[in-house]
């Protein structure tokens, strides 16, 4: 059996272990809930993370392109990026995939040497982590964008009005003159 075939066979167990490892980052009552509630609308965090991990594993096994993988990763990271975690805590779950794969393929690895394949798989996981880091940063930047946009949206008519008044008053004046005037008055001239 090839390593990929082995991974496909062990996928359900790997997924379970991987999912459990991320659940461990939540309080125990919450972890139980995130795991047990299967309705995706009643449990957005649990179902999004589980679904995302499932799709990620499939993608890794079938060598999907970076965009597809990014999308699944985005679903998970977008949630983790606004929860109570430091950046490293948010993204550490990705590396737990290495452990899950090792643990679940340990027996077969003893019988046959899969070390090259494992190294190759580790590299994929590392790439995943780097992509996740980019997504995480984008999410955090987005939060700041939203804050700025919201402030603008909140007062849009007032700002427009201020602009109109400004234009009406200063339409014929060169901005350079205005600055000069300002400087003069600052100097008390």
């Amino acid at each position: 059996m090839s390593f990929t075939e082995l991974l496909s066979e062990k996928k359900p167990a790997i997924l379970k272990k991987w999912f459990d490892s991320i659940l461990d980052t939540y309080p125990s009552e919450t972890a139980d809930f995130l795991k047990k509630q299967k309705d995706r609308f009643a449990n957005p965090v649990g179902s999004t993370i589980y679904g995302g991990m499932d799709s990620l594993l499939n993608s890794l096994l079938s060598n999907d392109d970076a965009d597809t993988i990014s999308k699944y990763l985005d679903d998970i990271v977008r949630i983790r990026a606004v929860q109570d975690f430091t950046p490293s805590q948010s993204l550490a779950f990705i590396f737990r995939l290495k452990d899950a794969v090792r643990e679940e393929t340990a027996d077969e690895s003893n019988a046959r040497d899969f070390s090259d394949e494992l190294t190759a798989f580790d590299l994929k996981v590392d790439a995943l982590a780097l992509t996740a880091f980019d997504i995480y940063m984008k999410c955090r930047e987005k939060i700041y964008d939203i804050k700025a946009n919201e402030l603008r949206n909140m007062t849009i008519k007032l700002v427009e009005r201020a602009n109109l008044i400004f234009e009406a008053r200063y339409r014929d004046i060169d901005l350079k003159d205005l600055v000069m005037e300002g400087n003069k008055s600052e100097r008390g001239e």
Binding site: Y26, E29, T30, F33, N43, Q83, D84
Partner: peptide, 14 residues
């Protein structure tokens, strides 16, 4: 009621 609050669902904070 425990798992019906959007803040619980989003924060996971009991």
């Amino acid at each position: 009621c425990a798992d019906k609050c959007h803040f619980y669902l989003g924060t996971g904070d009991p």
